[in-house]
């Protein structure tokens, strides 16, 4: 039997699973439920459980007393003490101050990186100038260098020279625009800004910045939002450099540094530490719940583009 025959035979035998896939009227609940057909739900649910469990556990420990958890078997359900533990945590370190600092850092960097990234991305994607390709290759190359590690010591010396040690700007300024932001926005602009629009704008008498304002910015909103989310998350969670340069000055701590100090000082008080950790994640979880779809799309698009 030839291959073609085989295919024919298969087709004749009725709808293949592949055809089912395309069929819009397919309704799985008409079939009887069986584990053999749905085992993948079990696997995925277990994966989901493992993904979410640490958050639950944070809350369990953070809402019980240490004695409830430091016993065998430990309590594995939430208790009544979360408010108390969280209050203790917020008094143990300058918690709200650190949250505010983190908002300032992440917010400033996000706005700046998206703006300058879009500007540079516009130039790279839509303008002809000498060195365009070479400079873009250079930008991509910079993304490969682990700058934070390689430059850690001179960066510290530089901040020392500027008098910025222990100040938020030491974390903000080096991140104002990154190679990643330029690269990302270049890709976004190349695909979502149409040349005809630019041409029309030019005919209307726009200079390049006018085109940037009236044509580019309105067309890249969603791509820029994804970049903004990633930048915000990255800065929110950044640890090594803030630890080095802000570590001394408690007033300038970001939330990660505050958390670290909390766990280093109150390590025996798990209820306090985990309640504080849980609190520190609430802003992120809110952002995530609102933007989850865009974030997932961003990760997946990034994969295809990358």
């Amino acid at each position: 039997m030839t291959n073609v025959d085989a295919v024919k035979a298969q087709s004749a035998a009725g709808p293949t699973p592949g055809n089912e896939r395309q069929a819009p009227t397919f309704k799985p609940n008409k079939r009887r439920f069986s584990w053999a057909n749905n085992w993948h739900y079990l696997v995925l649910t277990v994966a989901l459980f493992i993904s979410v469990f640490p958050f639950y556990w944070m809350f369990v420990v953070g809402s019980n007393t240490n004695a409830d958890v430091a016993q065998v078997p430990p309590r594995i359900t939430p208790g009544p003490n979360f408010i108390e533990n969280a209050t203790n945590a917020m008094n143990a370190v300058p918690f709200l101050r650190s949250l505010l600092n983190t908002f300032i850092v992440a917010g400033t960097v996000t706005v700046s990186a998206v703006f300058f990234g879009t500007l540079a991305g516009f130039a790279f994607a839509k303008m002809q100038f000498r060195g365009n390709k070479a400079l873009m290759a250079f930008v991509i190359a910079t993304m490969m260098i682990p700058l934070q590690q390689l430059g850690l010591i001179p960066l510290y010396m530089l901040m020392d020279r500027f008098g910025w040690v222990g100040q938020l700007r030491a974390v903000i300024v080096p991140a104002l625009v990154t190679g990643f932001a330029v690269f990302w926005m270049r890709q976004v602009i190349a695909t979502s800004v149409h040349d005809e629009l630019l041409e029309a704008g030019r005919v209307d008498g726009c200079a390049t910045f006018g085109l940037f304002r009236h044509v580019v910015i309105p067309s890249v909103r969603s791509g820029a939002a994804v970049l903004g989310m990633f930048t915000f998350l990255f800065m929110w969670n950044d640890f090594l450099w803030p630890l080095v340069v802000l570590g001394g000055n408690q007033d300038a701590h970001t939330i990660q540094i505050a958390l670290r100090n909390m766990s280093q000082t109150y390590y025996a008080d798990y209820a306090l530490v985990l309640a504080g950790t849980f609190m520190s994640l609430i802003p992120l979880i809110i952002v995530f719940v609102i933007f989850a779809r865009q974030m997932i799309a961003g990760v997946m698009e990034g994969a295809v583009k990358g």
Partner: peptide, 8 residues
């Protein structure tokens, strides 16, 4: 264009 890429 040079101006726009200069911040980076």
């Amino acid at each position: 264009p040079y101006l726009y890429i200069s911040p980076f």
